[in-house]
Design a protein around this nucleic acid. Structure first.
Length: 564
DNA sequence: TTTAGGG
DNA sequence: CCCTAAA
C-alpha cells in the first residue's frame, strides 16, 4: 500500500486540492509506505544512509512527540531538524515507534534510481521503498536534512542521551562510502556522467545507475554539503570532510552539524568562522516558530552568547482560549475540513509577511492518508516542496528560485480573483505583493502592508459576522475568507471595528449628508452600512460569547427583515 | 493561538 | 495596520 504525502503550500488548500494532486501526481509528491501504521524510526547517518534508530533515540523522539503533538517537527539536541511524518494525524497518539535493532539496510534503502524524480533540487523528494513487512514512516531525505541526534562519527553528546550503538558497520551490508577517493577539488560541473556516478558512490556508498547529470550533481552536492545550496559546484575535500568552496562560506556544513553539540561546538575552531552561517541559523530558528528549541549555545552577529537561551529552553504550557474550548465541545462542526484543521491546532492565520511562514499544520484528508502542509508566503499561496522546508538555511532565496517551478494554478486563480477585485475599484494599486512598498501617486512610499478593502471583501465580512457572529474572527476568516490569505482574523476584526465606527458616524448625518464620506477608499453602499449597523446593534444585544446559536437565530430572522 | 483594544 | 496584553 502506498500513500502519497502531498505538500500543499497554499494556505487555502483544501482537501480537494490534495485529492486532485493525488490523481495527478506532482513533483511535490512523496511516496512512501504508510500502511500498516507501524513506524520505524530511522535516522540518516553521516554516510547518507538510513540506519535504524536506537532505543534511546526512539525514546527521545517519543518524548518530543509527547511534548508537542501538534508539531511534526523538532530540533534535536544537536540542533538538527527532525521531521516525522505519520499517515494520520489522529494516530499520532498511538504512534508506534519500533527500534528494531538489526534491520538490514537493504530493506530500507533510498530509491535513487527512480527516474521520475524531477531534476529540481528542492522539489526533489526521496522515495523510501520498504519491504512489505517493514514500514518506514519517518521521512528520510538526503542525509542532510534529517539526521536525528547525531551524525555518524560525531562525538558523543555529553548528556548521555544518545548511545549510538547502531553503527553502520554493524548493520550495513552494502558498500560504504569512501571519501578517500574524493580528493582535492571537485568540479561537479565538469564531471562526466561516469565520474559523477563514481563520486556518487564515494559519497553515498552505493552504486547508482542514474545517468542524469543534473540529478547526480545535485545529489552529490547535497550529500557532500549537507544542504540544498547549489550555489557552489566546486567542492574541496579535506580530511575526509567536505568544504564548500564559496566566497566567504568556508565552513563545512557537515562539521557544523556535528559540532553543534554544545560542548564540542563551543570549542569548535569553526565557531565564528562565518557570520552568514550564524545568520542563517538564527533565521531558521525564527522561522521554526513553536518548535522545540534546544539551548545549545548560539552566537549572534557580535559573537555574544544568546541571552534568550534560558527562555527558549522552557517548555510551552498553553491554556486554550475560551473560544477554543468552546469549539472543541461543540462537537461536529459545519465544516469537516475546518474541523480537522482546528483539531490539529493551527497557525494558519498568522500574519502574512515577506518571510516564509512555516505553518506546521498537517491535515488529514478524507481517506485519512493525506497530509497537507499549509504555508503562507507573503500572502500568496505557493507550493513549496517538503525538502525545501526542512533545510535550515536561507529559505527565502531558495523559495524565490522556486517560484516559477512550484507556483500552482491556485496562485493564478488567486491573482485572477484579486485582479477582478481591483477592477471593481478604480485603481490597481497593490495588485502585486502586498509586502512591497508601492510608490503612491504622490511619489511617497506607501505603507508596507497595505491592501485596500474591496467591496466584496467588506460584503463577505459583513456576511461573515452575520453568520458566525462578531468576535469569531478566526471562524469568519476560515470560512468566509478562505480565499483571502492576506486578511488575517485580526484584519477582519479591525475592519469590522472601522465599519462600525463609520456606520455609527453615518447615523446622525444620514438625513442630509449622504455623500460626505470623501476619503473613504471604498464606497460602501448604504444598504451595507445599514446592515452593518443593524448587526452592530444586534451584537450589542447578544454577545456571541454568550450564545452563538442564540445569536445565529437572531441573525437569521433579522436578516430577512433587513435584507433590502 | 485567539481576541480585544490601544496606538 | 501593528503591537500587545489577556485569556
Amino acid at each position: 500500500m502506498e500513500t502519497v504525502v502531498d505538500i500543499v503550500g497554499n494556505e487555502e488548500a483544501k482537501v480537494e486540492d490534495s485529492v486532485a494532486a493525488r490523481n495527478k501526481p506532482t513533483p511535490t509528491s512523496l511516496q512512501m509506505i504508510a500502511d500498516p501504521v507501524v513506524y520505524q524510526l530511522v535516522r540518516v547517518d553521516g554516510n547518507g544512509r538510513l540506519v535504524p534508530a536506537t532505543e534511546d533515540e526512539v525514546m527521545e523522539v517519543e518524548d518530543l512527540l509527547e511534548e508537542d503533538k501538534s508539531e511534526n517537527r523538532f530540533v534535536s539536541d544537536s540542533g538538527q531538524t527532525v521531521e516525522c511524518n505519520t499517515n494520520c494525524e489522529h494516530d499520532l497518539d498511538k504512534l508506534q515507534f519500533k527500534a528494531s535493532e538489526g534491520l538490514p539496510l537493504d530493506n530500507v534503502k533510498l530509491d535513487d534510481e527512480t527516474p521520475n524524480v524531477p531534476p529540481d533540487p528542492v522539489a526533489d523528494f526521496e522515495k523510501v521503498n520498504v519491504q512489505p513487512e517493514q514500514s518506514v514512516a519517518l521521512l528520510a531525505p538526503p542525509a542532510d536534512y534529517v539526521s536525528i541526534f547525531q551524525l555518524e562519527g560525531s562525538p558523543k553528546p555529553s548528556n548521555g542521551l544518545v548511545e549510538n550503538e547502531t553503527s553502520t558497520s554493524a548493520i550495513g551490508t552494502s558498500s560504504k562510502p569512501d571519501f578517500s577517493t574524493l580528493k582535492g577539488e571537485i568540479h561537479v560541473d565538469n564531471l562526466t556522467v561516469k565520474e559523477l556516478q563514481e563520486t556518487f558512490k564515494a559519497t553515498f556508498g552505493r552504486e547508482t545507475s542514474v545517468k542524469d547529470k543534473q540529478w547526480l550533481k545535485r545529489r552529490i552536492l547535497m550529500g557532500l554539503t549537507n544542504s540544498c545550496d547549489f550555489s557552489t559546484t566546486t567542492l574541496v575535500i579535506k580530511d575526509n570532510g567536505v568544504v564548500k568552496k564559496c566566497k566567504e562560506e568556508t565552513s563545512n556544513s557537515v562539521e557544523h552539524n556535528i559540532l553543534k553539540d554544545p560542548e564540542v561546538g563551543s570549542t569548535s575552531e569553526n565557531h565564528e568562522s562565518s557570520p552568514t552561517f550564524h545568520d542563517s541559523e538564527k533565521e531558521s530558528h525564527s522561522n521554526a516558530t513553536g518548535m522545540k528549541l534546544q539551548d545549545y549555545p548560539t552566537v549572534d552577529n557580535y559573537g555574544n552568547e544568546d541571552t534568550n537561551t534560558e527562555q527558549r529552553a522552557t517548555k510551552r504550557v498553553r491554556k486554550p482560549t475560551k473560544r477554543y474550548i468552546e469549539e472543541l465541545s461543540e462537537g461536529e462542526s459545519r465544516d469537516s475540513c475546518a474541523k480537522l484543521i482546528s483539531s490539529v491546532g493551527h497557525r494558519a492565520y498568522s500574519q502574512p509577511s515577506t518571510n516564509m511562514h512555516v505553518t506546521p499544520v498537517q491535515k488529514v484528508g478524507l481517506d485519512g492518508r493525506w497530509l497537507i502542509r499549509r504555508d503562507s508566503l507573503g500572502g500568496s499561496g505557493v507550493q513549496v516542496p517538503y525538502v525545501s522546508r526542512i533545510r535550515r538555511s536561507r529559505p527565502r532565496e531558495n523559495f524565490m528560485t522556486l517560484m516559477p517551478v512550484t507556483s500552482s494554478d491556485k496562485l493564478y486563480t488567486e491573482r485572477k480573483v484579486e485582479l477582478e477585485e481591483l477592477k471593481n475599484l478604480d485603481s490597481n494599486e497593490n495588485s502585486d505583493d502586498d509586502t512591497v512598498a508601492m510608490p503612491a501617486a504622490t511619489g511617497r512610499m506607501r505603507r508596507k502592508h497595505h491592501r485596500p478593502w474591496t467591496l466584496s471583501e467588506v460584503v463577505k465580512l459583513v456576511e461573515g459576522v452575520a453568520k458566525y457572529g462578531a468576535g469569531r474572527w478566526s471562524e469568519i476568516k476560515r470560512l468566509a475568507f478562505a480565499s483571502y490569505s492576506y486578511r488575517t482574523s485580526v484584519d477582519l476584526k479591525d475592519k469590522w471595528r472601522n465599519l462600525l465606527r463609520a456606520s455609527f458616524a453615518q447615523l446622525p448625518a444620514e438625513k442630509g449628508m449622504q455623500n460626505s464620506r470623501k476619503h473613504a477608499s471604498i464606497p460602501i453602499p448604504a444598504p451595507i452600512l445599514l446592515r452593518v449597523r443593524e448587526l452592530a446593534e444586534m451584537q450589542a444585544q447578544v454577545p456571541p460569547s454568550f450564545s452563538a446559536s442564540k445569536f445565529a437565530g437572531h441573525t437569521g430572522s433579522d436578516r430577512s427583515g433587513v435584507h433590502e
